[in-house]
């Protein structure tokens, strides 16, 4: 059960973050950070299918995480999402067309290994 939940969290995290990033880039940069601008951003999100879809997928991941937290420690549950880092970096390059330099690959690999090491 534990590992099924980990699988659901990993896949949904990656898919959700990529959809949301694509949607937020399409919507445009939030330039000012006052409450009014952030409120305006949130209102526009309700007409943004990419971000809404991404949030729905992340919601599945969130409830899977709540379940996982109730049957294991936070030190197992939170690091279990580690694999998303490499998957997200790969999809950021292929789908979002980001310039993933060697530092980013190396950094994402180190983070994935480091987060996995935290489980011990």
């Amino acid at each position: 059960m534990k590992w099924i939940l980990v699988g659901i969290i990993g896949i949904c995290n990656t898919l959700g973050e990529v959809l949301i990033t694509a949607g937020m880039k399409r919507q445009g940069e939030v330039e000012k950070l006052d409450p009014q601008s952030l409120g305006h951003m949130v209102v526009r999100i309700f007409r943004n299918p990419l971000v809404l879809g991404g949030q729905a997928v992340l919601a599945v991941s969130f409830f899977a995480l709540l379940s996982l937290l109730s049957i294991s420690n936070v030190s197992f549950a939170v690091p279990a999402t580690a694999i998303s880092y490499l998957l997200e970096t790969l999809l950021a390059k292929l789908v979002l067309k980001e310039d993933v330099a060697w530092r980013r690959w190396a950094g994402a690999t180190l983070v994935t290994c480091g987060v996995a090491l935290l489980q011990w």
């Binding site: 990033t21 445009g28 940069e29 939030v30 950021a92 980001e98 310039d99």
Partner: peptide, 8 residues
């Protein structure tokens, strides 16, 4: 995420 790369 509206301002920065996901891979960042």
């Amino acid at each position: 995420l509206s301002r920065a790369d996901l891979s960042f």
